[in-house]
Every structure is written in structure tokens, then in C-alpha cells.
Amino acid sequence: MAKRPVPHMPFALRTASDAPAPSRTLIEQAYTQLRDDIVEGRLAPGEKLRVEHLKERYSVSAGTLREAITRLASDALVVTEGQRGFRVAPIAPEELEDITQLRVQLETGALRLSIRSGGAPWRQAVEEAWQALSAEEPIAPGRRRLWEQLNLRFHEALLSGHDSPWTLRVLRLLSRHSERYRSYAIQLPGSIRNVHDEHAEIFTYAMAGQEARAALALEAHIRATPDLLIAALREGRVQLPEGG
């Protein structure tokens, strides 16, 4: 007996698993926008991330937004609440001190190795990053986002002579968390700090091959923002938002 032909399944009867996955480009865009809003404080620490509300804000589907939020949870910028959804990760002085100590250990060690082993391509990358950053210092109002990008580029260029992709990945994550606190520190009234001179000192010592002095200058630079912010918190001149 001849087999009956299998009827063609109409598109309307396909299962949910057959639906196309969210565009990776849309997920990346939503991730970047969410990350920037968290880092810059537009989404406050502890704030609940309501998908139905945020999908309108970022003009993406709920599925795309959940994918982006999941990535942010992997970056520790978002925390999960079991079946209750997601919240922006809280911030605290103790966390800032922990992040700072880890950055000092990793970055100064990587800088020393980069100065020892970095060749002409490394020197060129550092010089180009330094020139681009210098052109944006002191930081102009309304251009902090660009400065942050150039600042990250300069720090990564300094460490790029040390061939360790994992070091750069970890430090990039720590840098994002540090930037959250810098958003509050930069608004402190009466703070006296010449970031350009700090960068210039690191650059000069690195290019001169003086690894010990370069490492000390980098450590002082990394600790400057946390020291200012923690002092202001202890003196009651500023409060970190708790969200809710």
C-alpha cells in the first residue's frame, strides 16, 4: 500500500521553537544602551528592571530585552531575583574598595610586563591613545561619554604589550564597575584633581621604560577616584542611591 503524503504544516501551526531568534544586532544595541544607562546612573542601583516598560523605552521586543539583561547579569551589573525578575546591581563603598584593590593588582602587574615586552607596535598604540585622550582633557561638559571611551582605550593600550586576552577581559569588566562610581565622584563639589597630569605621568614613565615609577603612578591614578568618593561618603557630603 502506498504511503499517504504527509500534509504540509501551515505557518500558523508552527511551534514557538520554530520562531526566529532575536537579531544579535538588536540584542547588542539593547545591551549597550542598558549598560550605559546603568553605568551613568540613569537606571539607579537597586532599581527594578520591568521588561514591559523598558521594551518601549528601547524599542525592542521583550525577548530581545531579556537576552540583553541576561548578558548584563553575567557582567554583574544586574542581579536576578528568582522568579521576581531583575534589578540593577547595588553599589556600596565596600564593593568599590574591593574593585579598586583588584584593579591595582592586575593593572600594575600587566603594565610592568607590557613595558618589558612591548615593542614598536605597543609604543605606537600607547602614543596614539594618549594623543586622542589628551585632546579631550580636561573633560568638557556633555562629552564625558567620549572621554570614557578614550580613557578606556588609553588604559587598555598601556596593558596591550602583555599578551593576555583574559587580563584585558577582566579589567574591562572592572572598568565598567569603576565607571559607575566615577559618575558620582565626578559631581563632588570642590574636588581638586588634574586627571590629565596623572595620565601624562603614567605615559611619560611608560615610554621611558621606568616600570616601577609607571606602576606607582598608575596605582595612584586608580586609587584617586575611590579615595575621593569614600572620603565624601564618610564625611556625609554625598550619598549613594539605594534604589528600590
Rank of each mutant, 00 (worst) to 15 (best):
E179A: 15
L146P: 06
R144M: 05
E198L: 07
H162Q: 02
H177C: 07
P189H: 07
P189K: 08
T167I: 12
V126I: 08
A212M: 10
E211D: 15
W166I: 07
E148R: 14
A132D: 13
R182Y: 15
R180G: 13
G190T: 10
G142S: 10
W147P: 00
L174W: 07
W147D: 01
L173N: 05
W122R: 00
L152V: 05
R193P: 15
I202G: 11
E201L: 15
R145I: 04
E179F: 09
L133C: 05
R116V: 08
G161N: 07
A110M: 03
F203R: 05
Y205N: 08
R144H: 08
A200C: 10
S178Y: 05
V170R: 13
Y205S: 07
L159A: 05
I186G: 00
T204W: 13
H196P: 05
E148N: 08
R213Y: 10
S160H: 03
H199C: 04
P121F: 08
S175P: 01
I192M: 12
S191W: 15
A129Y: 02
R172G: 15
E198C: 09
L171H: 02
E198S: 15
E137V: 06
T108N: 03
S117N: 13
F154Q: 02
T204V: 12
V170K: 08
E128D: 12
E211K: 11
D163Y: 02
G109N: 09
A200S: 14
Y205Q: 12
P165H: 06
G161I: 01
S191C: 08
A185C: 05
A135F: 10
R176D: 11
G142T: 08
P138A: 04
T167L: 14
L173M: 11
R213P: 02
G142C: 09
E156W: 03
R153D: 14
P121H: 07
S183Q: 11
